Simulated assay, not measured.
Amino acid sequence: MKRFFQRLLPLAIGKYFNLLVLFAPEKVAHKAYLLFCTPRRGKVLPIQSDFLADAAYERITVEDMEIQTYRWEGKGRKVLLLHGWESNTFRWRNLIGFLKEAGYEILAFDGPAHGHSTGKIMNVIRYTACTRAVVEAYQPDYIIGHSMGGLTAVYHQYLHPENSLKKIVTIGSPSDLEDLMLQYKRILRFNDAVFRALDRYLKRKFGFGIREFSTAIYAKDLNIEGLLIHDELDTIAPFRASEKVHKNWKGSRLIKTKGYGHSMHQDFVSEQVMDFLNT
Rank of each mutant, 00 (worst) to 15 (best):
residue 140 P to E: 11
residue 91 R to D: 12
residue 149 G to P: 08
residue 124 V to D: 15
residue 241 A to E: 08
residue 212 E to T: 02
residue 132 R to W: 09
residue 247 K to T: 13
residue 7 R to D: 07
residue 100 K to N: 02
residue 44 V to P: 04
residue 59 R to I: 12
residue 156 H to N: 08
residue 14 G to Y: 09
residue 176 D to L: 14
residue 174 P to V: 07
residue 69 T to S: 06
residue 47 I to G: 02
residue 216 A to K: 06
residue 66 E to N: 12
residue 29 A to S: 00
residue 220 K to P: 10
residue 225 E to G: 13
residue 185 K to R: 15
residue 202 L to A: 05
residue 143 I to H: 05
residue 232 E to G: 09
residue 49 S to D: 00
residue 15 K to I: 13
residue 210 I to K: 05
residue 106 I to Q: 03
residue 181 M to Q: 04
residue 22 L to P: 05
residue 194 V to A: 02
residue 79 V to C: 08
residue 55 A to R: 01
residue 3 R to Q: 15
residue 72 W to N: 03
residue 24 A to M: 12
residue 254 L to A: 11
residue 123 N to I: 04
residue 101 E to V: 12
residue 52 L to R: 02
residue 101 E to F: 10
residue 121 I to H: 10
residue 38 T to C: 06
residue 73 E to I: 10
residue 122 M to S: 11
residue 6 Q to E: 15
residue 209 G to I: 05
residue 216 A to T: 08
residue 232 E to H: 06
residue 217 I to A: 15
residue 110 D to H: 02
residue 217 I to Q: 13
residue 114 H to A: 04
residue 137 A to C: 12
residue 105 E to L: 09
residue 131 T to L: 08
residue 263 S to V: 11
residue 120 K to Q: 07
residue 171 I to G: 06
residue 223 N to W: 11
residue 216 A to Q: 03
residue 216 A to R: 06
residue 155 Y to R: 13
residue 207 G to D: 02
residue 234 D to N: 06
residue 4 F to A: 15
residue 93 R to K: 15
residue 29 A to M: 03
residue 144 I to L: 01
residue 203 K to E: 14
residue 57 Y to D: 07
residue 178 E to A: 15
residue 9 L to P: 10
residue 113 A to P: 04
residue 27 K to L: 08
residue 215 T to F: 05
residue 95 L to Q: 04
residue 268 F to M: 15
residue 86 E to Q: 04
residue 262 H to T: 08
residue 11 L to W: 14
residue 105 E to Q: 15
residue 254 L to D: 10
residue 186 R to K: 14
residue 223 N to D: 15
residue 238 P to V: 04
residue 49 S to W: 03
residue 189 R to D: 12
residue 172 G to Q: 03
residue 165 L to R: 07
residue 248 N to S: 06
residue 129 A to H: 01
residue 237 A to Q: 02
residue 112 P to I: 13
residue 272 Q to W: 05
residue 60 I to A: 00
residue 152 T to W: 12
residue 99 L to N: 01
residue 12 A to E: 11
residue 44 V to K: 04
residue 86 E to D: 02
residue 125 I to T: 07
residue 96 I to L: 02
residue 212 E to L: 10
residue 18 N to K: 09
residue 190 F to V: 11
residue 204 R to Q: 11
